[in-house]
Design a protein around this nucleic acid. Structure first.
Lengths: 349, 349
DNA sequence: ATAGTTAACGGAATCGATTGCATAAATTAA
DNA sequence: TTAATTTATGCAATCGATTCCGTTAACTAT
């Protein structure tokens, strides 16, 4: 196999009798190069098949026009949409996207952090792994002035850009909705409480109960490890076998919520009549399950777009923007069949 | 904000009274450096917070230890799993993953191709956009000896690594399964026929009908544009309103298949008794819909892993491997409720 | 002991693009 | 017409790691 040699700006320079400086500036539309020359050089570049070498430019400028993404898992609907939003925004601005997944392991997160750092990324977008508590591995980015945007699963004790949804309000609304539908014993499928998202959702749940004078019962709050289908199944079975079973469930994700619906049906418990269910995320399965699952919808792709924009803006503004900006996005409650005990949605005051 | 200076091998060299050459070699475990020196240097590097600059190394070596991925859309279950498999395999080998999505536009595919090329990727993994016909934009990779792996949606007329599933056999098996369940008028939801995957699935469908002496009826073959939920809905409605409606549907994806199930139920047509349905992909929605959807399962993550491995091997073997290797993976038919007209699966001979 | 090896390391060019500091040419001002 | 600008371009250093050639010192074989 014959391998063609690359065309560099030096080749262009020789061919056109210009210096490499002029070629470089022309290709970057530098103002000190005449329009005519720019046009000439660009056409020749095109014709000779010139393609810039990002590695060389990156080395010289000490940045790579690349955004690094560090998440737990790609193949989750929310994460895939998040990345999609990041990619779209980054690409429009001429930036690349490097992805890495931690599989929810602290160790992987550290190692991925290092690898991304080694690539001299322009900025880092992170959704923390389930295990992460210490944040030291992010310090080297801060030291070098590389912006970090934490998204969705964010740290409590680290000053940085953050993009989140209002989990508290979402949890509150979801629970309130169940209450308005007539539920009096509402169970909660809670995620790991050291992660902001699950903690806030639970807080919203608790406050909604309190404000509507419903008792908080520990036996109705199930602490999940991963909010998986299997876990949801087991929890639902146990709840429904109680002498005094719940009449509603607010699950911190859709997977567990769907498993609850399916489990209830199997056990002969009618949804929503005997058990109203509401989930979180609006995954595709939510609209497919029967009865269809009421849930909270995340603007995942938008969150990705905003995160990417933070990095791009920060980098464009020469690092003088406020690093601690926090973006909180609203969510929407999507009412489907699984929660409609009364058959209608009450007007919220 | 104070920005720390980076530690380079020159800093290490000065500090330890070695030459940069020795530092570089030591960090790469070069055999001409004594064990003792390597240990010394590595410890000092760790202590001083040295981190390699991939851009510099990449420039010098003219490669970046980065695999480029070019797909239509990230937020599809199959694609997300594919990327996940790529990422995992690449990372284990110390490679990064750059992603880009074409949104099924030819134009985007070209532009992404160029951007990835500019980053001097080690290899490219591609699933073609729906629109792509011309393949010229991939030529520059071939010219430079950069391996391309086409995966799933592959070209017909381009010599390169390919990783696919046996779409023909899968289509044949799916159809045969419906026949064995007693279907006699089987409709097919076909995807765009210029893409290998949909063409092969249809071929399998047609051959299965022929070999079982069932007539092929054009009115039962619906040509889809995107195999979306809406399209599926419309097609199903039309089919079921026929004077002589089908008693089975083989859909080229799960989304359309699920829409068929839901549409049939709404129209009072029982699934699978009056209409058996089988899909393709085994998306999460397949096991959630009721009746649950029989389908063909893809080893998506494995396909990603294999694709990445092709690139890594090719690059490790100094570009002397056979470029035209094609990997065909088997699929599995997943029989659920939507196709079980007879209530049992017949033993295939 | 002497030639021949081997082990351990250093010098300096190189990868390709960028950019501060010149310089030459062209234009304008006076 | 001459000085003062402006416009257009070139020179050469630089980014950080790698690697082809040495070179020196230590070691081995005969």
């Amino acid at each position: 196999m014959k391998i063609k040699k690359e065309v560099t700006i030096y080749d262009l320079a020789k061919e056109l009798n210009y210096s490499p400086s002029t070629i470089s500036r022309a290709l970057n539309n530098h103002k000190s190069i005449s329009k005519k020359t720019i046009k000439l050089i660009k056409e020749a570049a095109e014709e000779m098949g010139y393609r810039p070498n990002n590695l060389a430019a990156g080395l010289r400028n000490n940045k790579s026009n690349t955004i690094g993404v560090l998440i737990s898992r790609i193949n989750r609907p929310f994460m895939a949409s998040l990345i999609s939003g990041i990619e779209e925004t980054a690409r429009k601005a001429g930036h690349n996207v490097l992805i890495s997944q931690s599989n929810d392991k602290y160790e992987n997160e550290i190692s991925n952090c290092n690898t991304l750092y080694d690539s001299r990324i322009t900025g880092l977008i992170v959704s923390l792994s389930m295990e992460t508590v210490e944040m030291d591995h992010f310090q080297k980015f801060v030291d070098k002035g590389i912006p970090i945007v934490f998204v969705d699963r964010v740290p409590d004790n680290f000053n940085s850009y953050k993009v989140v949804i209002d989990n508290y309000t979402a949890g509150y609304s979801a629970t309130k909705h169940l209450i308005e539908q007539g539920c009096e014993r509402i169970a909660h499928f809670a995620g790991a409480q050291h992660r902001n998202v699950y903690r806030e959702r639970k807080k919203g749940y608790l406050d909604a109960l309190r404000e509507h004078d419903l008792p908080i019962e520990d036996s109705l709050i199930v602490n999940f490890k991963t909010l998986s289908f299997e876990e949801g199944n087991k929890a639902t079975k146990k709840l429904l076998k109680m002498s005094n079973p719940p009449d509603g469930i607010f699950s911190a994700n859709d997977t567990a919520a769907v498993s609850a619906i399916m489990c209830a049906k199997k056990m002969g418990v009618e949804v929503p009549e005997q058990l109203a269910v509401i989930g979180f995320n609006d995954d595709p399965i939510a609209s497919i399950v029967q009865p269809s699952l009421s849930t909270i919808s995340h603007p995942a792709s938008k969150m990705g777009a905003i995160s990417a924009k933070r990095i791009l803006d920060h980098s464009a503004n020469n690092y003088d923007t406020d690093l601690s900006e926090i973006t909180v996005l609203g969510t929407e409650i999507v009412v489907r069949e699984s929660s409609l005990k009364r058959g209608v949605v009450l007007e919220s005051e």
